[in-house]
Design a protein around this nucleic acid. Sequence first.
DNA 1: AGCACGCCGACT
DNA 2: GTCGGCGTGCTC
Length: 635
Amino acid sequence: MYADVVFPLKLPPLTYKIPANAPYDLRGKIVKAPLMGKSLYGLVVSVIGSPERNWKNIREIESVHQRFASESNLSLLKWLSDYYLAPMGTALNSSFFEETIKTGGSNQQSAVRIKNKEQKRETENSELSLVYDCIKEKNYRSFLFHPASISQELSILNKIMGEAAPYMHGAIILVPEIGQIERLLPDLKNIFGERLCVLHSRLTAKKRMEAAAQILAGRSDVVLGTRSAVLAPLKNVSFIAVTGEHSNSYKGEEGLRYNARDVAVMRGFIEKSCVLLSSVCPSVESIYNTKIGKYTPLNANRQPETKRPRIKIVGANRTKGKASTIAGEVLKEAKNTISKKGKFLFLINRKGYSLIRCEDCGHTVQCKKCGIPLVFYKAKNAVKCNYCGLEKNIPESCEECKGFAMKPSGAGTEKIKEEVEELLGTKTLLLEKERSLSPLPLTPDILPFVVGTTYAAKKLRDEKFDAAALFNIDQTLSQPDFRAYERTFQQTMQIAGTIKPDGSLFLQTWNPKNRILRFIKNYDFHGFYEHELSQRKTIDYPPFSKIVLFNISYKKGINLLDDIRNMLEAEEIKGLEVLGPVEIPPILKSYPHCIQILLKSKDSRILHSYARQLLNKLEKIKDVKINADVDPLKV
DNA sequence: AGCACGCCGACT
DNA sequence: GTCGGCGTGCTC
């Protein structure tokens, strides 16, 4: 008998001989086996009668250890590897396997103690009884809850957890960012006590190991954490919550590029658990999934419309020359706010002072290597590439038309700061990612004006402002990505959430008539989703199709582009659309060239089988690095 | 992940 | 001439 063993390395399962005296049920157990002259821990994923191929030297498993994976865990592992086009070892590596091995693997199972607080139960005739039933009876079902506010989102979650605690066996609660763990921790600690453990990427190796050991030993069966916690090594899972389900943070950009929200749904399906997705601004994709019956909407629990800040669309100053970037109406409101000792937030998603543009031909100075605009920093009197770090003097003449009319154009945080200080006679606090590392010099009581990127908005989430102005909404809307409108809508809703309910949010734009801005202004979720879905349908983009993005990084350009084009054209597959190949700016250092291919199909099986084939072919080419991204966020 | 092999720069 | 840098490839 032979066993397929997966190691936590970038490798597919490897075949080993099972020693005669080995226990019978090896599947899911940890074994020690020789690999490259060393002895390594791996996971048995299947037991087979004979090896798949005649390997020259099949070696024997050295020792058998504790169980790591249940049947469900193995199914999930397999799915992760298939779906995200990664070797199984990569999937295992993301699944707390190393942490388990290093703890020495305590094997004893202590019974889960359930705090059985007798709480008065109002007869629940709301939709929530669907959720409770689903948890109690171990049925798979995914729900989508669209609360009116973050506090409502969290209070529903607490209510469910409190109610279902006695019959919940295994639960995962996901938050998009580490900072949001704090908000849920006290209440969950109160409900679950010792059953609760926290899991996120910034835990020390030791703490992560401790958490893994607690979970594996069955002492912890409720896990609160970020993205990676969706793969917590729980034996049973009866409830998975994904808060802020629209968040981009759930998608990984390296290693196994999984989307924790989608993994949550799949894990729920495999484990027969209740999955609750929630967001104050759900993703278009999730809304679509409620429309096709994949998710069950929870509408009745949405509170009646709460008061929200007024959103005002303001046209940008059209007069050329001396006119300020900040529109008169915004300035007036800012003055008004400061006179009342209120707090005003200026937001612009561009660092530095401005860009440099040729007034003759309209060309913007760009980084030749990265193909993105160079940012002008006034204090340094230099332009800088925020991507590769290149810094140089402002070019005297235009590289396109050779003219000499190079002028600052557009605005960044520095320029807004300069204008605010000049026009309102007040100091401002500049809050940017690199500039002010924690602890923040946060004194908005003294400095009512804060200028920053949207990073500032995140940092200041719990700081309620009387009013805010957003300057770069046109740029966000016009990003060359099919999700640009969705992101703009979500970001703006998020910013609106940081303003007092009776306050105002100003959106300064060159196109006040833009349809998306109307949806935003009116908090018209329904209208926005309908509009966006119809747009996506006409161009056949997600959620009406599935996509996989390939990045092929390579060193020296013999005609790889032509080779790949020929390779793709050789076989045309029905129901599959191939966009590219196109040259794009390099993404890996030491690989000066990059080619991109986008695969798109309505049928995810066609898409995946072709993507896997293509990946195998591309990996055979020498001196290339292939990166496959399934369900990419940025296209 | 580690470990071997291989191809260009610094140097006893 | 060699030593050694890391960049690349392989592991049943």
